[in-house]
């Protein structure tokens, strides 16, 4: 595994620093997804949140490659992430190719995209499951217990990030916060389109440009995304 105690400690310190009053949920979740792929040594990671109507929606991914986003969204209602979300348990899929009967669309698409294994972890807030974290590997085989424990800790970090914005007490406030995160995600997709068209970039490059612009202007990613789409800001 490409990680050691120092990397792990640094990762958590970094996240603790990010959790300040005026942080951006979607940007934060993107960083968590990137870290997951990085620190856990998996090929790709994605975060899905409940739309509170029985389905999951993509809120962040370690790469903005459209193929990965599509694969994640394929798990709207079928796949290891929804299963983990509904049962509240981790779902280990060491060999995706063997699961075409269980999740026909998802297993086929994931295999075609070059993935061989998945680990789905529920994102829990107290006794409520708010989404799932999906970790994709290119080789078959389960994650080792140490990596799995760290993955769970990163999932908790993501959950804390979502509910951090204010002290959320009521279930309804959590719901409203989830809704806000998902709406921001849509705005970011729209902004990626604007930037891609303007600079003749692919969606990955477009997202990076947006992120860098937000960084250098010291603005929240989703605020800048909104302004880019409405024309109030140019990237």
């Amino acid at each position: 595994m490409p990680m050691n105690q120092t990397t792990i400690a640094e990762t958590f310190v970094e996240f603790a620093d990010t959790l300040t009053a005026d942080f951006d949920v979607v940007d934060f979740l993107h960083q968590v997804a990137v870290k997951c792929a990085d620190v856990l040594g998996v090929a790709a990671a994605g975060l899905l949140l409940t739309d509170q109507r029985g389905a999951l929606r993509v809120v962040a991914a370690s790469s903005e490659r459209t193929r990965l986003l599509e694969l994640l969204q394929l798990q709207h209602d079928e796949g290891p992430c929804p299963e983990s979300f509904h049962t509240g348990r981790p779902i280990a899929v060491p060999d995706l190719a063997a699961e075409t009967g269980r999740w026909p669309r998802f297993a086929t698409a994931a295999t075609a995209a070059g993935f061989a294994s998945v680990e789905a972890l529920p994102m829990r807030l107290r006794d409520t499951v708010i989404g799932a974290l999906g970790l994709f590997g290119t080789r078959p085989g389960p994650l080792d217990p140490v990596t799995l424990r760290l993955a769970r800790a990163l999932g908790d970090v993501a959950t804390i990030g979502i509910v951090q914005a204010r002290t959320i007490q009521r279930q309804e406030e959590i719901a409203a916060q989830l809704q806000t995160a998902l709406t921001s995600r849509v705005a970011i997709e729209q902004a990626k389109g604007v930037i891609a068209e303007r600079h003749d970039l692919d969606m990955d490059g477009s997202f990076e440009l947006l992120r860098r612009a937000a960084r250098s202007a010291n603005r929240r990613l989703s605020d800048l995304a909104r302004d880019v789409v409405t024309g109030e800001a140019t990237v």
């Binding site: 929606r57 993509v58 459209t66 986003l69 599509e70 694969l71 969204q73 394929l74 709207h76 849509v186 997709e189 729209q190 902004a191 990626k192 389109g193 604007v194 930037i195 891609a196 068209e197 969606m203 789409v229």
Partner: peptide, 14 residues
């Protein structure tokens, strides 16, 4: 699964 496409395309058509 194309929902991301729809939003991205919206931005491009803008």
């Amino acid at each position: 699964p194309h929902q991301a496409h729809v939003h991205q395309a919206t931005g491009m058509v803008v």
